[in-house]
């Protein structure tokens, strides 16, 4: 970018500036071509559906034209923001996704660092495979495994009883306060291996000579991790953090839906389940869309704030 900017500044007439632009364009023809399908994808799947936002201002009925719909102004938003339940599910959503965000980052980075230090390739591969596996299990199955393990006669209670940590079985999924912790742990179990991939990839780009130099200078293993590996993957961490903050209102749907029950509903019900119950299942698509719009706006704010923060701190960022 810098180089092109210099070129452009060099030319005086509009015409020559344009010519320079097309010169660069033709040089990067292949790159342009390669990005074309993705551009089309973004337009078709991300921009075209924005039309659907009009639904938020209608009492929407399926299979009818735009002109046959009843327009209701901000009624759907009013319903949403007046609903007590909405604030409860908003709290749950924010807490659960923050828990997932923090736990997800810390555990994945930690595991990636540890894996990177392993010398024996077979052992490393085995650990990687085992930690990836749960990622590929469907949530329906995973939730059943968790339910069974946490049942009064499940392995978890049996173990804790044997170790004398508890004196009678605990109904883990029956205590609302435990739910966030259980969900966080389940997410870590399921996704930690998968999340390490990107960090491991980032680590491989670090110049090995840095490690050699550090070793000669007498840096210990921990010091090398702290002073070389972590700074080396910092840009990746920051970018991922910014992007994930953009998803702060997406705490997931399946695990909460499948692990939730009457006893933990005050803690397990999130925005997506609320939208399913009051929006989609009642054919109230206007409300569902309004909630979706709200989510998008909040995500947008988070994304911009995080990016500006990164900019101010002189870190790598999205734009």
């Amino acid at each position: 970018m810098e180089k092109h900017a210099v070129q452009l500044r060099g030319s005086t007439a509009d015409d020559s500036r344009l010519r320079a632009f097309f010169k660069v364009l033709s040089r990067q023809k292949m790159l342009m071509l390669m990005s074309l399908p993705f551009l089309a994808w973004v337009i078709v799947f991300k921009y075209v559906p924005l039309w659907g936002w009009t639904i938020a201002f209608q009492k929407y009925k399926l299979a009818r034209d735009l002109f046959d719909q009843t327009w209701v102004g901000l009624d759907n938003f009013a319903f949403l923001f007046r609903e007590e339940q909405f604030y409860l599910v908003l709290r749950n959503t924010l807490v659960m996704s923050s828990v997932n965000l923090v736990l997800g980052f810390v555990t994945a980075i930690l595991l990636a660092l540890l894996l990177n230090e392993l010398r024996r390739v077979y052992f490393k591969r085995t650990v990687q495979t085992i930690s990836y596996l749960p990622h590929f299990i469907s949530w329906v199955v995973a939730a059943n495994i968790v339910q069974t393990a946490l049942a009064p006669e499940g392995i978890f209670n049996v173990l804790l009883l044997q170790l004398n940590i508890i004196d009678k079985p605990v109904l883990w999924l029956g205590v609302g306060e435990y739910f966030w912790g259980i969900l966080g742990a389940t997410e870590v179990w399921k996704n930690v291996g998968w999340n390490t991939i990107i960090y491991l990839a980032a680590i491989t780009t670090i110049d090995p000579t840095q490690y050699e130099a550090a070793e000669i200078d007498g840096a210990s293993r921990l010091q090398r991790m702290w002073h070389i590996t972590l700074p080396g993957i910092k840009p990746v961490i920051v970018i991922l953090l910014i992007m994930n903050l953009g998803h702060i209102l997406e705490s997931g749907f399946e695990p909460q839906y499948l692990l939730g029950n009457g006893m933990n509903v005050e803690y397990s019900e999130n925005l997506d389940i609320f939208v399913l119950k009051y929006g989609i299942q009642m054919n109230n698509f206007g409300l569902a869309t309004a909630a979706g719009m709200f989510k998008t706006v909040v995500s947008f704010i988070f994304l911009i704030v995080a990016n500006n923060l990164a900019k101010r701190l002189g870190e790598s960022r999205l734009y």
Partner: peptide, 22 residues
């Protein structure tokens, strides 16, 4: 009727029961 006050009442009443019965 879909999205009618009666249906929303049903849903809310049901939610309330699920919360309080246990």
């Amino acid at each position: 009727e879909q999205g009618s006050p009666e249906q929303i009442f049903n849903q809310k009443a049901g939610d309330l029961q699920q919360k309080f019965y246990p």
